[in-house]
Design a protein around this nucleic acid. Structure first.
Lengths: 157, 157
DNA sequence: TTCCGTGCAAATGATTTGCAGGACT
DNA sequence: AGTCCTGCAAATCATTTGCACGGAA
């Protein structure tokens, strides 16, 4: 019952939509990605799997996956959006290395709490938030190595 | 010595650039704006002042003003960037009403401190950060009024 | 003079959309 | 049958850029 493909199908049905071959292939491929990825990168991965799905369909399906809450969408000021599998109840924010583009995740309960307090003080009803820290990561600073082309790296300690 | 136009001129000279009529008009106009504004909105304001400056120049000058640290640039997921006069030492983050587009500012010293701690734990050297809280503001929730077209509102309590 | 800067229009580039033929239910 | 979908190419849209002419130092 927590199979993502089923979750997606349930979501689609609910919206009067169908789980097509393309949509299913895309979800299954997406589930294998353990990093942050762009629409373009997903498109390339699908071609490598000999799935000739159009870019339009990739974009359309990514939107659906975000709506279905299977994916989270992020704008890290890279000129294109990045996606990652939603860790439903484990919300996290990001540290983005502007040099090598590595992306790290962090979660700080106290920050979240203070943030809610700030919103409350402004009579503001939070829908979601983004907290991004840009700078340079330790590896880049010591090795000067840039992130290889292709998938944006996501490293966890 | 803290006259923004002079600051800009100093910055330009330093870069081997000139303070042209257009650039000066743009800075002076920008200085009068007390809200967040887009390139397009600035362009329109300039036309109203009978300054026929091209959009290309507006964009080019905005970039320079950001480099000169006279303006801060924000991406609030609105499809276009917003700018605001840099409050040099008074950094702040934002609450963005997704319904009426009002923008509120907040500063929480404790959050900033915790954030530095998070970065330190990751051996991450911070360059800058963005902390945006999206949701609905009190006014929108009670009146249902949408933000009027034109300049994005910035309200402070 | 000598670059630097400007306006204009064309180029970008990620994402979206209109259409016409296909595919689920 | 009746929708929903897909692929393709064209359209968007904010922003950028190439060029030839105009302007500060």
């Amino acid at each position: 019952m927590s199979d993502p493909v089923e979750t997606f199908q349930r979501f689609l049905r609910q919206q009067g939509l169908k789980l097509t071959t393309q949509r299913e292939r895309i979800v299954r491929r997406v589930l294998k990605i353990k990093k942050h990825f762009s629409a373009e990168e997903l498109f390339d991965l699908l071609r490598k799997d000999r799935s000739r799905i159009s870019k339009a369909t990739v974009y359309r399906t990514l939107s659906l996956l975000v709506e279905a809450r299977l994916l989270d969408e992020h704008d890290f000021e890279l000129g294109h959006k990045l996606y990652e599998q939603s860790q439903r109840d484990e919300h996290h924010d990001h540290l983005i290395c502007v040099a090598c583009r590595a992306i790290f995740e962090f979660h700080n309960h106290e920050i979240e709490r203070l943030q809610e307090q700030v919103a409350a003080e402004h009579d503001f009803a939070i829908t979601y938030h983004t907290h991004q820290i840009f700078g340079t990561c330790e590896e880049y600073r010591t090795t000067g190595k840039l992130c290889p082309r292709g998938l944006a790296r996501t490293r966890r300690d």
